[in-house]
Nucleic acid binder design. Structure first.
Lengths: 152, 152
DNA sequence: AACGAACGGGACTAAATTGGTTCTATATCA
DNA sequence: TGATATAGAACCAATTTAGTCCCGTTCGTT
């Protein structure tokens, strides 16, 4: 459930990769090789991330991309938002007000809440966190271990 | 981002609807009218929920569906799992081990963590919670208000 | 016993989404 | 000036999703 698209996955891998050397300007071709996709595909993702102001682009020869902010200040939620469109687990909560069965729409308020939890959890997880090979739960407030009711 | 499929959304609406009268046997046709979809569509969802043991089916004339357990003991995570397939935000974390770019797969461990947060949050939210018009945050441990870093 | 209501399961079609490529224009370094 | 590299849009193919239909089975009702 809650599967992200491939492009979004690639996007997080790219951001993580770049976070390891935040100063370096990386070209689309270089990143494509690094993460194992074709250049046009990487390029498409990079353009999207740049348009969302998560990356800064450098045009011209020896150009490429650069993290727009320190990796610790870029949350995974932002990366997902950039690549996956507007937030919202259901259509209703994403684009409020155009719901066919208004009678059942008490639900929406609850979905909004669930969305919010997820968003907060992902807001607390930064690109810098992801770049660390061993991930520090302390950095991510929402990631407390809560063992109850965890089905297979 | 993290958009659920329509069917899953319908599924939660159905479960919530049924939670309001847990004793009553509801036919597919009746539920279809209640939530505003065509009968075959409702039927498809109900079959899936029954196969996942979230609903109990009653065959024959005057048959229908019934919650398999008290609504407070059915989590939203289960409903989503039933309708959306195996858990996992990326392909890698859903079906471990078949990742093209193994080098970048440090990421996977982190994604797993994120998945877990989301899952725990949704595990704590039950069908009974959703059925209440005003939703009690106290019932849902993971739903603490945490105002930091909440962009547009 | 026969009829009809209702579920079980699978196959199928159409529509929407996604993944990926290509092309043209623009910017910049050497 | 030429090579390199991004910007942006259009486009195609493949997958996924939504929704429908059909046939078999179960079981009240008459």
């Amino acid at each position: 459930m809650l599967r992200l698209s491939k492009l979004t996955d690639y996007g997080t891998v790219i951001m993580t990769h770049m976070a390891r050397e935040p100063e370096r300007v990386c070209s689309a071709a270089e990143l494509a090789v690094a993460i194992g996709v074709a250049t046009p595909t990487a390029s498409k993702i990079l353009k999207t991330l740049a348009r969302a102001s998560l990356l800064q682009s450098v045009r011209g020869a020896r150009g490429g991309y650069l993290l727009a902010r320190p990796p610790a200040e870029i949350s995974i939620a932002e990366v997902i938002d950039a690549l996956e469109g507007p937030f919202g687990m259901t259509e209703c909560s994403a684009v409020a007000g155009l719901c066919a069965q208004e009678g059942s729409c008490l639900l929406r308020a609850n979905w909004q809440r669930v969305n919010q939890v997820i968003r907060l959890a992902l807001n607390d997880l930064t690109v810098a966190d992801m770049a660390q090979p061993v991930f520090q739960p302390a950095n991510v407030g929402a990631l407390r271990a809560r063992p109850e009711r965890m089905p297979g």
